[in-house]
């Protein structure tokens, strides 16, 4: 464990908590893409299949459990409890166009052709594009509530911090995981224009408005 990965995990946890609180407190999931939340639930499910079979550390097990429970709770809140506030008119990204290519790619490019490894690889590829429906929704509505932009900033920062973690691990432990690194770079790049808008607007107290 290193500081980059720890802060990254905490940023990830913060994002998930911000989203759950936003939906629970405002009793509304307006401006949130349910499609992205479904993809995140798929990402954690396929990545943490070894949750019950492999023990890495108490921290690792607890965090995996929290991510899985929180992602399903978010999907439940959006599609069941606060279904009436779900913006299905704007949340129209075809996630099958993300699921199928990621699955095919995980069959073609992986480190080991076993169920666990292919599922882990699939979850890495899928996570890199899972935010697309959310970014698509924000671009369609042209704006985002500030709480939603804080959620996105924390979520985007987590993987950016993981990039620093991989640099550190390469230098300090001569360890690298190319599939995770390439996917992590793609994932972080997708947030770049959002990061720009967040830093130039939201941090100055303005609403996040996308140029129409």
């Amino acid at each position: 464990m290193n500081i980059f990965r720890l802060v990254g995990d905490l940023s990830h946890l913060l994002a998930i908590i911000i989203l759950l609180l936003k939906i629970w407190k405002t009793r509304s999931c307006a401006g949130i893409s349910g499609k992205s939340q479904i993809l995140f639930a798929v990402v954690y499910t396929t990545r943490y299949l070894d949750l019950l079979t492999t023990y890495v550390s108490a921290y690792n097990t607890v965090m995996k459990f929290v991510f899985i429970v929180a992602s399903y709770a978010t999907v439940y809140l959006m599609y069941v409890k606060f279904r009436a506030t779900y913006d299905h008119n704007h949340d129209t990204f075809r996630i099958e166009f993300l699921l199928v290519p990621c699955f095919i790619l995980s069959l073609l490019i992986n480190h080991e052709f076993t169920v666990l490894e292919v599922m882990w690889t699939f979850s890495i590829y899928l996570e890199s594009v899972a935010i697309l429906p959310q970014l698509f929704l924000v671009s369609k509505t042209g704006e985002a509530e500030s709480i939603t932009s804080h959620y996105l900033f924390a979520l985007g920062s987590y993987r950016a911090l993981y990039l620093l973690n991989w640099v550190y691990r390469y230098m300090a432990e001569d360890h690298y995981e190319l599939i995770a690194i390439v996917s992590g770079v793609v994932q972080t790049v997708l947030y770049c224009d959002f990061f720009y808008l967040y830093i130039t607007k939201v941090l100055k107290g303005k609403k996040l408005q996308l140029p129409a």
Partner: peptide
Amino acid sequence: DRKGNAKDEL
């Protein structure tokens, strides 16, 4: 080289 998987990461 890849020392083991990055499975210790979340």
